Computed example of a mutant assay.
Amino acid sequence: MTNGLVLAQLIDQAEDAGADLVTLRAIVEEAGELGAARALARLGLEDAAAAKDMAELRELLGAWRDAKRSAAKALIGWIVRLGLALVLVGLAVRLGFGAWVK
């Protein structure tokens, strides 16, 4: 059972017991806002600078991902170049160009 369904059933039960639907919805909304505020406070994100901090963290994470991607591409490029160089050396030796070096 999802939380939304449980909440809807609880509201229905309270309304059947005589509570006003508008009052119940207001209580649920206030409880949700209070819970969200508590969760943000526990994470240390309750102050006005939290939005800026989160934006900076997202930017930093994006830069980190870009750096990892660039490093991986560079590594793959070097491996391919090394492989091609080895193939060329092998062909040179196979075709007898090794004697030119001596």
Rank of each mutant, 00 (worst) to 15 (best):
A14C: 13
I11F: 01
V6N: 06
A17E: 14
R58G: 05
W64V: 12
W78T: 04
M1D: 12
A17S: 14
V89C: 10
L95S: 15
A17Q: 13
A49F: 05
A41C: 01
I11E: 01
G83N: 09
L40M: 07
A50Y: 00
A71F: 07
A71H: 09
A48W: 12
L91P: 02
W100Y: 10
R58N: 05
I79F: 14
A41I: 01
V93G: 05
G90H: 03
D66N: 09
L75H: 15
A26V: 01
R58P: 01
R25N: 11
G83M: 09
A99N: 10
R58M: 03
N3D: 15
A48H: 13
F97D: 06
V89Y: 11
L43H: 04
I76K: 14
D47C: 05
V80S: 12
R58Y: 07
A14L: 13
L21G: 04
E30S: 12
G44Y: 01
K102Y: 07
A26N: 08
E46W: 02
Q13R: 11
G32S: 10
L24Y: 01
A8K: 02
E56H: 02
A14T: 03
A55W: 00
A26D: 06
A51G: 06
D12C: 09
N3P: 10
V22G: 07
L5T: 13
E59I: 10
V93C: 06
I79A: 15
E30A: 15
D47R: 04
G44D: 03
E33F: 07
A31W: 03
N3F: 15
T2N: 14
A31N: 08
Q13S: 14
A55Q: 08
V28R: 04
A99D: 10
L57Q: 06
L5I: 13
K102R: 14
A14P: 00
E46D: 15
G90Y: 08
V101Y: 12
E29H: 02
A67V: 08
A41M: 02
V80N: 05
K102T: 10
G35A: 05
L43S: 02
D12Y: 05
R65M: 07
R65I: 01
V22T: 07
D53C: 04
L82Q: 10
A55S: 03
L95E: 14
L86Y: 09
L88M: 14
A31F: 14
A37E: 09
A36I: 08
A63D: 11
D12M: 12
L84W: 14
M54V: 08
L21Y: 09
A85M: 13
A49M: 07
I11P: 00
D12L: 09
A67W: 06
K52A: 11
A48D: 15
W64R: 06
I27Q: 09
G18I: 11
V28H: 01
V89M: 12
I76N: 11
L5W: 04
R42T: 03
A55I: 00
G83V: 15
L57A: 06
M54N: 04
L7R: 07
R81Y: 09
A92W: 11
G44F: 04
G35N: 06
D16C: 07
K52N: 04
L75R: 15
D20L: 01
L60V: 03
